[in-house]
Amino acid sequence: MTLFEILFWIAAALTGLSAIMVVVTQNIVRAAAWLLFTLAGTAGLYFLLASDFVGAAQLIVYVGGTLVLVVFGVMLTAQGPFVNLRTGAGEWVFSVLAGIALYATLATAAWVTAWDKSEPQEQDAARSSNIAQIGMALTGIREATPEGSITGMPIKPGSPPRSRWRTAYLLPFEIVSVHLLVVLIGAAYLARAKRRKAEGATP
């Protein structure tokens, strides 16, 4: 067992357990708390996988932003009867069975597939240039993206190089930013102060 594996198992256990607890718990506030731990565990896993920027982003954006938002929502709406909303047993069974089926499928897919047998490069997190590469990729520098086929399939010999079409991720970056703008506007509109209708009125 290398250090990698030990750390992996610890982080994985935390994350998995927390995820399960999110599902199991009836109290919405407690679910939020367990979600926090799940997200934190996930961040840890990112750091383990030498993706420090992503891990950092996870902690900042996800935990510090999204989760806070969720907690806001919980706090705003968890009044009295809404804290503990139970579901019937039949539905639990059905959902768990569906979940198990899905997990079986995914797991089988993961194990059965013949992954590439290459060793991961040993990376030193202190000296990795991941962030620089991410930045270059996001700003559209062509060399930041691999020349080979992203799908992992072997390149057919004689096919024209794809280098001409590679534009890195500039376009998705722009789209996402516009998207965020739209979301901003939309959320602001949706959450504006409205005249309160009578109780039980349909929207």
């Binding site: 579901t87 539905e91 059905f94 959902s95 569906a98 979940g99 089926a101 899905l102 499928t105 995914l106 089988t108 897919a109 059965v112």
Partner: peptide
């Protein structure tokens, strides 16, 4: 919604299995 999500999940299972 919850039923719909279940159906989604089941459908995904079925599709995966079939494709595999």
């Amino acid at each position: 919604i919850r039923n719909y999500i279940l159906f989604l999940a089941l459908a995904a299972v079925v599709i995966f299995a079939l494709m595999t």
